[in-house]
Nucleic acid binder design. Structure first.
Lengths: 333, 333
DNA sequence: TAAGTTCCTGAAAACAATTTCAGGGCATTA
DNA sequence: TAATGCCCTGAAATTGTTTTCAGGAACTTA
């Protein structure tokens, strides 16, 4: 391809040393006006832009942070990423995103960018690797987690209290007088799913409602799985009078079944979702759901991560940010 | 932070030269078994992983490609990115994603990664910069566009024929006997929007239906804008009997209005969307829409981009891949 | 005038890797 | 025995930048 122009060419053209060019590039004060002028002129004429590979090597920093997600499909991540980007940008960092496609091998490959100094830090949003592996990596590298905690993982983590959130949602349904509450969740056990399910059980227990395994449907992540779940739960002899789904996607799928059966949502059957995705208030009836502070989680994890870069005693705490219940038509609100 | 172990340390520990270590790292054949053994042992003991800043600088390549998108919100991009990733990976490249948040300044900043050799190539998915700027950049750098073409922009581009696609959708509605067809589009003039609108007009013209500006609603990208658009069109004295929206999001918003008014979708009023997003067959009634070959567009643009890296005579053609109509309930299918 | 400052400058080292080149050791061939 | 070839090795050059260090010039101060 085209041969690049280097700092050397600029120096030659401007009749100064490369040190002076570098000084101009980095806006150092100790350069004469004449030199600044000449260098900028040369840069413009040659169309020079510095090679960051050289710079990054010398400085041993890239000012780039990698966000590792499963895929860009869940638009739910977008606010988290915005929080990360805005915070990073304010501190002079760029955020790059890479996807694992749910493959732990590929996740490890992407983490290689961290080990090989291609980025200064990395954030895992919903890791597929196990707690032990991540703990070990986080001990030696600038690695954090966001949205998803890992039981027994000693790494900087920013998330919400999913147990409490699940409990809050189900308690709300109970306070609405419901006693038979279905749960639609997934077989793939992300910690957040497990936590939400535990919240569901705690809410039942505290209210003296016996746990009935028949009311729990384990499926996949897709909306169609929600539809199947609802169908199965509603074909029980002793039907549920409310359903808590661990994601809005599942809840919307579930509602599709209820709608097609002519079930009156919000009265006959209540629905509670999780995530407050965009479609939860586009889909009719509007879905009651748990909202996470996405932007704030992104913001906080980047702040802590960047702090960690500058210290020998990195923070490996677990931060839990407050969630909130969004009440809409599907709970009769 | 922690002080890194370098190739030098490995060499010392393994009692060989750094050249030999490098040869082992790169799986060169001309190294004795003993040396390979010793080096690998040292690597393991020291927990060494090579610093890519050094490697990339020396090799003048990063084997990384940057995909620049507006935001990760539109899940629609995810298939394109999957196509890009799978193709890139097969050729030994990684794909990184960065978001512009619709800011041309930030888009330019991200392109800086290309100029500064931080990545080997970049793909713009829906650029905010103008055709002239991009043409100039593409002349000197490995830059391509995907999903969106730019009128008069001389850069490698992979997209679909949006004029034809709009025309196909509207022609289908006309063939269903509809004569008053509304259009819901956006004021923000992405080329694809303009093209789809032109397709709409061509379809009308070819079928001898006069163009009525009252039937065209210009709004924003959100579903609520679709709702407003539908409300406005349906309050006309001479109501439409079909609506073509330039995105599924707008179509779903529009359908929300129709549903709330008790309008019989698929009979009284037909709907045609664009993109075939996931929700177009989750939302009820299922939406007829235009499907783009997302994966294939991602695949093709990466193939061509990588080809371009290896030649002095880069391909700057416009490739248009075939689209297809997905017929569902909203057109009475 | 001598000594000390301040300002600006360029040569060279440093960053961590790959690659080139020359040569030592050994076996094969004439 | 000498010449040739092959295998393996390490020293040194190379990549593009930043940074350190030493020093020249001009100016101030005693």
């Amino acid at each position: 391809m085209t041969v690049s122009v280097t700092i050397k060419d600029v120096a030659r053209k401007a009749n100064v040393s490369i040190a002076t060019v570098s000084r101009v590039l980095n806006h150092k004060s100790n350069v004469s006006e004449d030199a600044v002028e000449a260098v900028n002129q040369a840069i413009k004429e040659l169309g020079y832009s510095p090679n960051f590979l050289g710079r990054d090597l010398r400085k041993s920093e890239t000012r780039r942070i990698l966000a590792i997600i499963a895929s860009t499909e869940q638009s739910f991540y977008s606010e988290v990423i915005r929080g990360m980007e805005e915070t990073a940008m304010a501190k002079g960092y760029d955020v790059l995103i890479a996807t694992t496609r749910d493959d732990p091998k590929h996740e490890m490959h992407l983490l290689g960018m961290l080990f090989s100094h291609s980025v200064d830090g990395a954030v895992l949003l919903g890791p597929k690797l196990d707690a032990k592996t991540i703990s070990e990596l986080a001990a030696n590298h600038n690695l954090a987690m966001c949205l998803e905690r890992l039981e027994g993982c000693k790494a900087l983590t920013v998330t919400i209290n999913n147990v409490q959130a699940g409990k809050d949602a189900v308690s709300y349904l109970i306070n609405k007088g419901r006693r038979r509450i279905g749960l639609i969740t997934t077989t793939q056990r992300a910690q957040s799913s497990v936590d939400r399910e535990n919240g569901y059980r705690q809410a039942l227990e505290e209210n003296g409602i016996p746990y009935d395994p028949a009311l729990v449907y384990y499926g996949t992540y897709g909306a169609d799985s929600g539809t199947r779940g609802c169908k199965e739960l509603m074909s029980l002899e002793n039907k549920p009078d409310a359903i808590f789904a661990i994601s809005d996607m599942l809840a919307i799928g579930a509602m599709n079944h209820a709608l097609s059966e002519g079930i009156e949502i919000g009265k006959e059957l209540l629905f509670f979702g999780f995530d407050d995705i965009q479609y939860s208030h586009i889909f009719i009836p509007h879905l009651s759901t748990v909202r996470q502070p996405c932007f704030m989680q992104g913001k906080l994890v980047i702040e802590k991560l960047i702090d960690n870069m500058k210290t020998d005693d990195p923070d490996r705490s677990l931060y839990m940010l407050p969630h909130s219940l969004i009440l809409r038509e599907t709970t009769g609100d």
